[in-house]
Amino acid sequence: MSDLARSALPGAEAGGIVSVREMGLQGMVTLRADLSVAAKALKKVTGAAMPEVRGMTEGEGTRVAWMSPDELLILCDHSAAGEMARGLTEALKGQHHLAVDVSDARAMFSLTGEAGALRDVLAKVTPADLAALAPGEMRRTRLQQVAAALWFESGTEARVVCFRSVAQYVFDLLALSAKDGGAVGYH
């Protein structure tokens, strides 16, 4: 049904001191399990190693993010998510777990711009300590009034994930923070 499928805000973009872009359909799978024994199954299905606390690991076209002591979020191709959830369920058979396709429950944004401006824009909306956010680490926090997760893809790109229903709010919030004239010059 991919021809009928639409992300939360297809094509939404805004410019300013940094650029904000909705990234379109993104596959996501929630896995809840005892992470101390799920590494093998994870590796088999996603190709990725078990991430450290708050960490992210790379697999073959997949990425695995640590969500909580018994929860992972797997990023993959949108069309592959259903199969991945089933694959995890199969691989973890006999073991207490929950694997479910949640691709459509969320929205993802890319923020690109000069390193300092990027952090300035994010610092307008999150109480998280951005200086303490190492590359490859995902921080679950709030963007003003809603829950979100964010990480730095590189020095000049950050990613933000939020729930689908508040995608418009998060986009408006980021676009407003990135508006020209709003440079802070702190980071």
Binding site: R6, Q144, S165, V166, Q168, Y169, L176
Partner: peptide, 16 residues
């Protein structure tokens, strides 16, 4: 109030 006015006064959850 900060940015919280107009469109971003409060998150309005939207269905698909």
């Amino acid at each position: 109030a900060g940015e919280a006015r107009g469109a971003v006064f409060q998150p309005i959850r939207r269905t698909p």
